[in-house]
């Protein structure tokens, strides 16, 4: 019974992440810097890292990236976003384990590493390492957006903790 519940919860999170990806595309946020975005789907990653096991959280990240790319994106965009998503997931999972930082800081650092992962993948694909000059701009954008995403996740989690939707091994 508990397994079914977990399965439904994971599916719901993936669906929500995809909706957030779509909503994000509707919000005009184009500043002429490749890779700059709000990163609303990171709310779901932060929530899954807090309420699910590492394995299930990773499954959510990979599935939502793949499905979003299949529905609203293209192949090269998928490579960039998956590299960013995986790197930022690894860093955020590690920071969450150390339990020293607040969710907002973890979210900001995760956003910065998402940009680093994305730009590195892009640099390899187009074989031009000079696109690194965009990184400082992306870092400056990542701070307010990461703060926003972290605050949203914190608010959501305070409600989720009152439910029994918690599948993390003690």
């Amino acid at each position: 019974m508990k397994n079914t519940k977990k399965l439904v919860y994971i599916s719901l999170l993936i669906a929500q992440a995809m909706v957030l990806n779509y909503v994000e595309k509707l919000i005009p946020f184009n500043v002429g810097i490749p890779g700059a975005k709000l990163g609303l789907a990171n709310i779901i990653t932060l929530i899954s890292l807090n309420t699910l096991s590492l394995k299930s959280a990773l499954l959510i990240v990979i599935t939502r990236s793949t499905l979003s790319a299949a529905m609203f994106g293209n192949v090269s965009g998928f490579i960039y976003s998956l590299s960013g998503a995986l790197l930022s997931f690894a860093v955020m999972a590690f920071l969450m384990k150390t339990k020293k930082l607040s969710l907002m800081t973890i979210s900001i650092i995760g956003a910065i590493f998402h940009n680093i992962g994305q730009l590195s993948a892009a640099a390899v694909i187009i074989a031009n390492y000079k696109i690194g000059i965009f990184l400082p701009f992306l870092v400056l954008i990542a701070i307010p957006t990461g703060l926003f995403v972290g605050t949203c996740s914190k608010g959501l989690l305070s409600y989720l903790y009152r439910t029994d939707l918690y599948f993390k091994e003690k």
């Binding site: 607040s102 800081t105 900001i108 910065i112 400082p136 870092v139 400056l140």
Partner: peptide
């Protein structure tokens, strides 16, 4: 401490720009 870390990151990015 966290706010200082973030401000430091912003400062480094700003100098890099």
């Amino acid at each position: 401490k966290e706010i200082i870390i973030i401000l430091l990151i912003a400062l480094i990015a700003f100098i890099a720009i």
